[in-house]
Amino acid sequence: MAVVTGAESGIGRATAVRLARDGMDVGITWYADEDAAARTAAEVRAHGGRAAVEHLDLTRLPDAADAVDRLADALGRIDVLVNNAGTGTAISFLDTDFATLREVVDVDLLGPYLCSQRAARRMVGQGGGGRIVNVTSVHAHQPRVGAAPYCAAKGGLGLLTQTMALELAEHGITVNAVAPGEIATPMTGQEDTDVHTVERPGVPLGRPGDAREVAAVVAFLAGPEAGYVTGASWPVDGGMLRMGPMAGSHLTDHSWRRP
């Protein structure tokens, strides 16, 4: 059984459906749109999986992490946790107020920490190992102006992933990160966009990613074929990180391609 946080839309929804296609029951959490979470659950069931739904507000810590235990109780166990729920900012470092900083760090770092603790304790108790996949960002590896709290939290989640991988390995639990670039989701204002019709000159593959492309990598890391993979970060970014200081979805032409 898998728990996917933030599964009402975007990467979380695509991941929940993909894991159901792969034969898993799925626990779904939602933050803002219960009806959307119900639609995700219906898709999971349409693929033959059982589904359970819980509200999760990661600004209400530590109690919010109880949702992981409730979903595990509802579906009988937990074998996979995907920490996908997240939030971000578009404000300068100098202008960021404490409330905004605290919200982003709670949702993007402390929440995944506590949810992973709950899941890992159950996995250890069950025996047989498990999988934890943290959805970070390319900005866990490279900074972005206007996103200081987000970069700090996602960078911290990246190092937490590595530490968890070391500590949980003896229990047969692997821990990896998936680091998306620009993906067509509600967070980027592109839900249901045909990514092949959108030009992104600043991305080597020339377009945004589709949420299902991220879900496919999460599903690999959550599955049996990734049993010897742990502590790694898997960018799903169309090659953007390989550009280093030239990177950016904001670029408007292809001049960087020429020496």
Rank of each mutant, 00 (worst) to 15 (best):
R122K: 11
I132D: 07
R121E: 14
A152M: 14
A152V: 12
R121H: 08
R121D: 14
T163L: 05
H141I: 13
T136F: 06
G129E: 11
T174R: 05
S137M: 08
A169G: 15
T174D: 01
I173H: 01
V175Q: 00
R131A: 14
V133R: 02
L160K: 02
H171I: 06
A148V: 15
A148G: 07
V138S: 01
A148L: 11
E170F: 03
V145G: 11
H171Y: 15
H171T: 09
Q142C: 05
C151K: 03
L168F: 12
Q126S: 11
K154G: 00
A140K: 01
L159H: 14
V145K: 12
A120N: 11
A153I: 04
P149D: 11
L168E: 00
S137Q: 05
V138N: 03
T174N: 12
V124Q: 14
Y150I: 07
A120Q: 07
L160I: 06
P149C: 09
C151G: 08
N176L: 05
V175C: 05
L168N: 00
I132Q: 08
V124W: 08
V135H: 05
V138Q: 07
A147P: 03
A140D: 05
I132A: 08
L160M: 15
V175A: 02
N134F: 11
H139K: 09
M123K: 13
I132G: 13
V135W: 03
S137D: 08
R122G: 06
T161D: 02
Y150L: 05
V145Q: 07
G127E: 13
A169I: 07
G125M: 08
G127I: 12
C151E: 02
I132K: 09
V175E: 01
C151T: 15
I132M: 09
V135G: 07
Q162H: 09
H171R: 07
G146E: 03
S137V: 03
E170G: 13
A148N: 07
G129T: 11
I173C: 04
N176T: 00
L166S: 11
G155P: 01
R131Y: 10
T136R: 05
H141W: 09
H171G: 04
V133L: 07
T163F: 09
Q126Y: 04
A153R: 01
T174G: 14
G172F: 05
V133A: 04
H171L: 06
G125D: 12
H141L: 15
H141Y: 10
T174M: 06
V175W: 02
T163N: 10
I173P: 00
G129F: 06
A147N: 03
S137N: 06
T136Y: 04
N176R: 02
A140T: 02
P143S: 14
V133Y: 04
R122D: 03
A148K: 01
Q126C: 11
K154S: 01
A140Y: 00
M123Q: 10
H139M: 06
G127H: 09
A120G: 07
Y150D: 01
H139F: 13
H139A: 13
V135D: 04
K154I: 00
V124L: 09
L168V: 04
E167D: 15
